[in-house]
């Protein structure tokens, strides 16, 4: 319960590379907890979401309570507490994109994937999110799939994008 009771013996749930990165991050700032947000983002990239185990380990590494970590993490909509699909499709519906047909685009994604906002397909390949401006207004409407952008889209581009990622997913399953 108290931040002081740390248990350094626990095995890390992160990869050795990420662990090493965290060791550096924690020592980098005058106040340890300044490392919190970057750590959460990296952890989410590696694990997929902020699981209880992620929160516990990050809290312990920084020496704050798990509640503290949750207080911060819940503030940011880009941090999530449930697993997303392998490919997280974020459709911007802010003003520029909206004016250029983002809602039609978003609806098409919903129809094709049979999921709504924050939904995950049953095979776990895709998740869908309606998000605020992602900073590509000049090529609106735009979407972001994990860290990749697709812009100047029309609803008709949707099946192609989906099948493209689907084959990537299958490939990776085969490779796995």
């Amino acid at each position: 319960m108290s931040p002081k009771e740390s248990n350094t013996e626990t095995m890390s749930i992160f990869s050795p590379q990420l662990s090493a990165r965290f060791d550096v991050l924690v020592a980098k700032y005058p106040v340890k907890r300044s490392a919190l947000i970057p750590m959460l983002l990296y952890a989410q990239d590696e694990i997929g979401y902020l699981s209880d185990a992620v929160i516990a380990e990050v809290a312990e590494r920084i020496g704050i309570t798990q509640l503290d970590v949750r207080n911060v993490a819940t503030y940011y909509s880009m941090l999530r507490f449930k697993p997303a699909g392998k490919f997280n499709i974020q459709v911007c519906t802010n003003i520029s994109c909206m004016l250029r047909g983002a809602y039609e685009l978003y609806e098409r994604f919903q129809d094709e994937l049979h999921i709504g906002h924050k939904g995950v397909t049953s095979d776990g390949v895709f998740s869908l999110e309606e998000v605020e401006c992602i900073g590509v207004c000049c090529w609106a409407p735009a979407i972001q799939v994990n860290y990749a952008f697709h812009d100047e889209l029309t609803p008709n581009d949707v099946p192609k994008i989906i099948s493209e990622y689907k084959s990537k997913a299958n490939g990776s399953v085969k490779n796995a």
């Binding site: 319960m1 931040p3 309570t65 798990q66 509640l67 503290d68 949750r70 207080n71 819940t74 503030y75």
Partner: peptide, 19 residues
């Protein structure tokens, strides 16, 4: 010095949360 209460979420959805 117990730190059992926190505040979660943001804006209108902000809520007091127990540890």
């Amino acid at each position: 010095d117990v730190y059992a209460l926190g505040i979660q979420n943001r804006g209108v959805t902000s809520v007091i949360a127990p540890n």
